[in-house]
Amino acid sequence: MKRDPVIIIVVALVVSAMLAVGVYKSRRSPDQTKTSGAGMKGQSAPDFALQALDGKTVHLSDFRGKAVLLNFWATWCQPCKIEMPWFADLQNHYASEGLQVVGIAMDDASPQEIGKFAKDLGVNYVVLIGKEEVGDSYGGVPFLPTTFYIGRDGTVVDKVFGLKGRGEIESAIKKALSQGQAVQAQK
């Protein structure tokens, strides 16, 4: 069988072009679709009412005036397990400055199982039982962990996909704490 180099080269170039277009589109599209982080930035964080592990109903608006780290997680998510102890630690460290960490469990597990899981990881912050519609109101949460940083004025400062380093999390917390500080001072 004779192989013509020109044909091989043309095929290789076409395949490369298709792959490049695919990669380009997949890199761009999340920023333009409902999985977007940029789409929520600067917008007011949607309020919600969710049940806490103790059965009480908690609203996002209950934390008005505080910077909120809103973390969507699940018991089946291994990367989530890594950052939860960091969140607990950061909650201790920045509580006096006005930080509130809120975990939303997007899980089919029972509240008891979720509570046990969180306790084993040393979670000291508010944990709520998630609902799909709350994830949808935040632009969709197709994978976990997904974390929103909400400023004191209630606007979304940042949205982060997947596991990030502790340093990055702390920087985003500082940014959220500084957002809306002027508003607080005026009040």
Binding site: P5, I8, I9, A12, S16, L19, V23, S26, P30, P142
Partner: peptide
């Protein structure tokens, strides 16, 4: 022809590698 062929192979492999290493959620 040999150079173009090598370049094409490199392009395909690079694109495949980049596609494999997309950040989470992409």
């Amino acid at each position: 022809a040999a150079n173009l062929l090598a370049l094409s192979c490199w392009l395909v492999l690079t694109c495949l590698a980049v596609a494999q290493d997309l950040p989470p959620g992409k």
